[in-house]
């Protein structure tokens, strides 16, 4: 973007970039430092010794994968519908979905519990997965619809002429084009489902169904508060997300450039 000539201006730009990331980096470093206070690496051993690390990772993984699957299915279908198909009251539906973006998780917990117990889903992972998906879908539809808007209609027209029906066009022509936006949907949904805290805490009571965000609370109780343990647990919790992001970084960026928000 910047047209840079000469060694000094390039160095200057590099310096500017470095200065800009320092405030972002510093808190991360302080956090890592804190997790090594007191017992040092022993804090990590302490987290492992709670004995629930494998269980909570497994549950969080199940919740994240399922949420991603539901969000992905709903988003792709709906975004395609909103972008390419004729729907009675299309914008009304679209805005009705977007309006759901404004709902804070904390205030719908009690009503959600009523829903969950009516369907006998309390203490099942699905009682966390479905609300998480519902809270995520508005945002992903927003970015995916923009992506589909960018897919030329001509590609699909050609297929239609060849006699393919809507589902076939979607499956064999549209979906393969959506790989970039898929990465964006996965990353965003993973962030919100892996980090979810209030919903799992409310909906899942059984010890065997707890999730990673509950790990730090193992080190706090009314009259104790083991900060080093809390931080070590937090670091452990964050590692998979950071890894997934790094893994998808390239396609994630590509997906957003194609869909972006316009």
């Amino acid at each position: 973007m910047f047209d840079i000539h000469g060694r000094w201006s390039r160095l200057g730009l590099q310096l500017l970039a470095t200065l800009m990331i320092l405030p972002f980096l510093a808190p991360l470093v302080f956090g890592l430092q804190g997790s090594l206070g007191g017992l040092g690496l022993g804090n990590y051993a302490k987290v492992w010794n709670t004995g629930i690390v494998p269980t909570v990772f497994m549950n969080s993984a199940i919740i994240s994968v399922c949420t991603i699957a539901i969000v992905y299915a709903c988003t792709m279908l709906a975004a395609f519908g909103f972008s390419k198909l004729r729907i009675m009251g299309r914008e009304v539906w679209f805005w009705a979905i977007l309006a759901a973006l404004t709902v804070p998780e904390a205030v719908i917990l009690t009503p959600l519990f009523v829903v969950a117990s009516n369907f006998d889903l309390y203490d099942e992972l699905i009682a966390v997965i479905l609300p998480l998906a519902a809270l995520q879908v508005p945002f992903t539809i927003l970015i995916a619809r923009n992506f589909f808007d960018g897919v030329p209609n001509e590609i699909m027209e050609a297929a239609r002429v060849d006699g393919a029906n809507g589902l076939q066009v979607f499956w064999s022509i549209v979906l393969p084009l959506t790989r970039p936006i898929t990465a964006a949907i996965i990353v965003f949904t993973l962030i919100s489902s892996w980090n979810s805290y209030l919903l799992p805490m409310l909906m899942l009571t059984d010890q065997s169904k707890q999730v990673v965000t509950l790990l730090p609370s193992f080190f706090t109780s009314q009259y104790t508060n083991d900060q080093t343990g809390v931080l070590a647990a937090a670091v452990i919790t964050a590692v998979p997300e950071v890894l997934v992001y790094l893994l998808f970084q390239k396609s994630f960026e590509r997906g957003l450039s194609a869909g972006a928000l316009k």
């Binding site: 399922c66 539901i70 709903c74 279908l77 099942e124 029906n165 809507g166 589902l167 010890q207 065997s208």
Partner: peptide
């Protein structure tokens, strides 16, 4: 068939997600 496909995808995903456990 499109509708049925869509609904069954959603159901499949939903049912795959309700795990259980034991103590």
């Amino acid at each position: 068939s499109a509708s049925i496909g869509i609904v069954s995808v959603a159901l499949l995903v939903a049912s795959a997600c309700s795990g259980s456990s034991s103590t």
